[in-house]
Design a protein around this nucleic acid. Structure first.
Lengths: 124, 124
DNA sequence: CTTGCCTTTGACGTTAACGTCAACTTTTAC
DNA sequence: GTAAAAGTTGACGTTAACGTCAAAGGCAAG
C-alpha cells in the first residue's frame, strides 16, 4: 500500500504517517522510485497508535509498548510499565468522572434556573 | 492572600497564577507596593481551573464557563455549551475505557507468557 | 509523451500552558 | 536598618504532534 491509502484507511494525514516513521512507530519499504510502501497491517498499527495517543501516552512510550502489543510478549519490567500506565489511565478516568459529575451538577442548577420565568422565587 | 500562598494552597506555580490572570481566569487587587492580593475563594477557583484543564478544556472555554460555575446561572446558549462539553467528556471517557480494556488484555497475555517457564508449551 | 495526481525531502510555522532567567522592588524578620 | 525571602514585569525557551508551503520527481492513462 502507498502512503495515501494507509492514511485514508486509518484516518490520519500522510504527514502524520511520515512523522510516525520518524518516531520509529511504523516502518516502510520503498518502491524503485523511492516511494514508501506499507504492509496492510500497518493500518491496524496506526489505529493502535491513535488510541494510545488519545490515552495520553507519548510517542516515546508508545514505541516501547507497540512490539509487546503485537506479540503479547513482555519482560517483567515491561509488564510493570504496562501496569503503571493502566493504573495511570484508571486514575485519570476517575478524575474525569469526578469532573464530569461536578459539571453535571452545575448544569442541573443552570437548567433549573432556566426553567424559572426569570425572577420567580429568586429573592426572599 | 499573596500569590505564593494561593499557589501552594492550590498546588500550582506562581507563574501559572500570573498566566491565569492574563487569560482572565482569575482576578486580583494590588497592594500599595504593587503586589497581587487575592481573596481566599481564588484557591477554589484555581482548583476548578485545574479540573477543567485536566478534562481537556481550553482556557478560552474555561473563561466562558467559570462565571456560571460559580453563580449557577446560565443562558440557554451557555447551557447548550455545557451539555456539549459534558457529552464530549462522556465520549472521551468511553474511548479511554475501551483503550484501557485493550491494554489490559495485552497485559493479561504478557503476564500469562511470563508465568510460563520460558518455552513451556510455546511450540507444538 | 504529457497531463494530472501522488509522493518525497526539507524546513519553517503553530498552539497551549507554563518554565526559566534577569534585573529590580517590596515585605518581612530580626 | 539590613539581609533574606517573596513579588514584579518582560521576554525568550520548551514540548508534542503535526500543518503547511515549496520545489521536484514518480506513476498510470490515453
Amino acid at each position: 500500500m502507498r502512503i495515501g491509502e494507509v492514511a485514508s484507511a486509518a484516518g490520519v494525514s500522510t504527514r502524520a504517517l511520515r512523522y510516525y516513521e520518524q518516531q520509529q512507530l511504523i516502518a516502510s519499504s520503498r518502491s524503485t522510485g523511492g516511494q514508501r510502501l506499507y504492509t496492510p497491517d500497518t493500518v491496524e498499527r496506526v489505529r493502535w497508535i491513535q488510541l494510545l495517543y488519545a490515552a495520553g501516552l507519548s510517542s516515546r512510550t508508545i514505541v516501547e509498548f507497540l512490539p509487546c502489543v503485537h506479540t503479547g510478549i513482555a519482560g517483567p519490567e515491561m509488564i510493570a510499565r504496562l501496569r503503571a500506565e493502566r493504573d495511570r489511565l484508571d486514575d485519570h478516568m476517575r478524575d474525569l468522572a469526578a469532573t464530569r459529575a461536578r459539571l453535571d451538577s452545575v448544569l442541573a442548577a443552570a437548567e433549573f434556573g432556566a426553567t424559572r420565568p426569570a425572577g420567580e422565587a429568586a429573592e426572599v
